[in-house]
Simulated scan of single mutants.
Amino acid sequence: MTLNVIGVFNDAWKLWKRDRELLIGVAGFFLFVPQLALKLFVPLPPNLPDFGEAAKVRAWVDAAESWSSQYSLIVILLWLVTLFGSLAVFTLYLDPDRPEARRALARALWLSPRFLLLTILVALPVQFGLIFLLLPGFYAQGRLLVALPAGVAEQPQGALASISRSLALTRGHGMVLAGMGCLVLLAGDLLSRPFIAMGKMLGGAPMANPVVAGLLDTAAAMGVAVALLGGILIQVALYRRLVSSRGI
């Protein structure tokens, strides 16, 4: 059995075209605003040093501790808002009760603790795979790509059951979904990186323009938000196709 990847992307695009006004409202507030706040108010953590030089390592540790003490709490809060926004979009499409927008937000709030646990459990193998070798991370992302949709659609299923469900639905499509997982993981970085690079160039100029810098940060945040929303719609479309094709 082959997976129609183009069909998945077409399905996601149809969801966007049909519901774009609703999605702009939800994603604008819960996906774009946190990303914009992150760009505007949280500086990047210090770059890793050359670990062959002890003095530079000590200086980096001090700088990293200082950054963490100042910004870690706001980063976590903004991440939780983004997570809630993602869950709200999943709920709009996959909750068994098919709630309208206001009820979807309430349902998302109720599901948040379980969804948070599931998100962490999905992220662990993906991040470990990316740290050691890129391909295992992308493969893990692909095989777990429908764990979050399954967790919403098949309530009251727990986090581990949702992961098992994703592994069952994606069996036989590992390498194809690894490519899709790679796209979902990297799309935000790819869309925002040109604006971030331009912002760094501007920040290093003798007379940096804060208005232009703010516009670049806004564009970068918008790129990340678009990628996040696109990834969610792809996961929704993929889950529906896999369930329909496997009948399980």
Rank of each mutant, 00 (worst) to 15 (best):
P43R: 05
P43K: 02
L44A: 15
P45V: 06
P45E: 02
P45A: 08
P45I: 06
P46M: 00
P46F: 01
P46T: 01
P46V: 01
N47K: 15
N47D: 15
P49Y: 09
D50H: 10
D50Y: 11
D50R: 09
F51S: 03
F51P: 01
F51M: 01
E53Q: 15
E53I: 14
E53M: 11
A54N: 07
A54G: 05
A54K: 12
A55N: 13
A55C: 10
K56I: 11
K56D: 14
V57R: 00
R58Q: 04
A59P: 06
A59K: 12
A59Q: 15
A59H: 11
W60Q: 01
W60M: 05
W60I: 04
W60A: 00
D62R: 13
A63F: 10
A64Q: 07
A64D: 00
A64E: 02
E65W: 13
E65Q: 14
S66K: 14
W67K: 04
S68K: 12
S68V: 11
S68I: 15
S68F: 14
S69K: 15
S69P: 07
S72N: 07
L73F: 13
L73I: 15
L73G: 11
I74P: 03
I74D: 04
I74Y: 01
V75E: 02
V75T: 08
V75Q: 03
I76V: 09
L77Q: 11
L78S: 02
L80K: 03
L80T: 06
L80R: 03
T82C: 08
T82Y: 06
S86R: 05
S86F: 04
L87R: 11
L87S: 08
L87D: 04
A88G: 07
A88H: 07
V89A: 01
F90V: 00
F90S: 00
T91Y: 07
T91D: 08
L92F: 04
L92Q: 01
L94V: 05
L94M: 06
D95F: 04
D95R: 09
D95K: 11
D95N: 11
P96I: 08
R98C: 06
P99S: 03
P99V: 08
P99T: 05
P99D: 02
E100T: 13
E100K: 15
E100Q: 13
R102T: 12
R102M: 12
R103G: 06
R103F: 08
R103L: 10
R103N: 07
A104W: 00
A104L: 02
A104G: 05
L105C: 11
L105W: 14
